[in-house]
Design a binder for these strands. Structure first.
Lengths: 328, 328
DNA sequence: GTGAAAGCGCTAACAG
DNA sequence: CTGTTAGCGCTTTCAC
């Protein structure tokens, strides 16, 4: 006997009535409703979500695919999770590690769970997985893949980078090194454009020997910083690093070279954290509203599920000058 | 027509045969198998997990309930996630925030998804949720609740704290302040015991005015440190903080009091991170093998699902002395 | 080695 | 307002 039928027997009604009481109580007579609810309370009954989702052709779950699980992503996940819970949704989490196969696997697995929708940090491979997104409400978070029909929630990456590098040029820096992610990732591209624009505004020629590209992980930031400081024809007096993990790598590199911030090199970076704040000196950063990004992504998804046009949110990412940036 | 039936038609067999081909290919003739697999490949078919789980009375999912989602937990989650994926399991994530209602909600929701098992960071309320764990294979991670029949995977908390405080006494400290979590949490209790033992070994009387208790979050560490340094009858010359977030809070407190580490106060803490490593001076820590903890928890769960005695793993948490600890 | 049929636990039409 | 019935997509007997 299934659980629902048990309750039904206990309350002396049919299974359908129990189901109705739980899902559309207004259709049930008060007397009956009370009787059923008592039985439900007494047994601690919860309908089987699998059966319910199967029957309803859709679950109360949403997918969340992140590219990694560093502190930035953890905050995003927490925000999505909290917001989902408020909307009676639960989250199936995947990590793609920016890998094509893991992303595909995540999307395939997700689909087989009949999710309501999907919040996704897209990767370079997302476009080729377009078919797997068919029929799903998709919110792209943090980055954008260029796919049409999806919603997007991201920071004002270009503007943030622009302000950071403007700050450096205003301090008098002319040789400004920079480390970005791969330029086919929208965030890296936007931050790169902000960097270039700030140079232009200051009348500084763009010099490709001052720029390196990593993969957003710490090790690549370290390698990029070492390469930049060892090889650059003109040694930079300031460094702009476009994500948190690579900044950590850069800081480690600077220490190994025994360079003092900001005396030997000014450092400005993307993504605030307590590490950046407690560093000596504190690091000047572009502060993305991380929790807010995740929260809004989930809210956009919820609204989208109720129907509506694609939404495209861009949250402000203010630059916060701190002790790591000084005149050359 | 359901998807399975579609494949069946395409391959000219019955639905049952398609199902067999996917799940128990050895029962199917080679010729048929090839034909079915071709149809599956061609269409990119994935069986509906909901239907499958319902029919099989069990899903391929495991629950993961963490108390928070700070960097420590993020690493645990990633480890569990990675290991689960290798075992063809997927993870349903919940955050309890150490709250009774959120933990109960998580367990109720989880049950309705027919999970294989559960990895759980227990809270003070887990014991009263014992009924909700009935029939589930449970691995307690990081902490232990005292429930019987569960598996446990945790660090050697007492030993770690013991070594840290021994280090402080060896340096000559006699007034050693300490900040712990609530003592009914097993990790806090074990670390407290390590602290007390180290004092005993050094012939130092335990002084309760030197001890504070927080809730494992940053703000409480800050408050505890301020209280300790402002009010303690004998001002401590060293401070042991028993978790990462509270250590961050303590560091902030020390700065606000303009106390220099280790000149004015030695600091030793629990949980390594890049923040601790890059802090100036680097913080001496008890380094839990965080990723390993999550990985082993998942491995224990997988093994437990195949049957077997309750396992109780305790991983070493070595103390790493760094620049934040010095003679008084 | 394969197909027909039943059923996992639930919800939605349809009667009454 | 409530009960009966069918069926979501799959797997698993049970025959053949």
């Amino acid at each position: 006997m299934n659980r629902l039928a048990e309750i039904a027997k206990l309350a002396g009604v049919s299974a359908a009535t129990v189901s109705r009481t739980l899902n559309r109580p207004e259709l049930v007579a008060e007397r009956t409703r009370v009787r059923v609810m008592n039985a439900v309370q007494a047994t601690g009954f919860r309908p089987n979500e699998l059966a319910r989702s199967l029957r309803q052709q859709g679950s109360r779950s949403i997918g969340l695919v992140v590219t990694d699980l560093n502190p930035f992503h953890a905050t995003l996940v927490k925000a999505v999770q909290d917001t989902a819970e408020q909307n009676d949704l639960n989250v199936i989490l995947f990590t793609s590690d920016d890998s094509e196969s893991r992303e595909r696997e995540a999307l395939l697995t997700l689909r087989s769970h009949m999710p309501q929708g999907l919040i996704l940090i897209p990767t370079a491979h997302t476009r080729q997985h377009q078919k797997l997104l068919q029929g799903l409400t998709v919110v792209e978070l943090d980055r954008e893949s260029g796919l049409t029909g999806t919603h997007t929630v991201q920071a004002q990456n270009r503007q943030g980078a622009l302000e950071a590098v403007r700050h450096l040029t205003a301090l008098g820096h002319r040789n400004i090194g920079a480390i970005f992610g791969q330029l086919h990732i929208s965030t890296a591209r936007a931050r790169f454009e902000g960097y270039v624009q700030a140079l232009q505004e200051a009348g500084i020629a763009y010099d490709e020997t001052l720029v390196r590209y990593g993969n957003d992980l710490e090790a690549s930031g370290r390698a990029a910083a070492l390469s930049l400081l060892a090889e650059a024809a003109r040694r930079p007096t300031a460094l702009f690093v476009s994500n948190h993990e690579m900044t950590v790598g850069a800081i480690i590199a600077l220490r190994s070279l025994n360079l003092k911030i900001p005396r030997d090199l000014s450092l400005a970076s993307f993504d605030d954290s307590r590490l950046m704040l407690l560093h000596e000196p504190p690091i000047s950063v572009v502060a993305q509203p991380t929790y807010e990004l995740g929260k809004r992504a989930c809210e956009v998804l919820v609204r989208a599920l109720e129907g509506g046009e694609p939404q495209h949110l861009r949250l402000e990412a203010p630059f916060i000058p701190r002790g790591s940036t000084a005149p050359p």
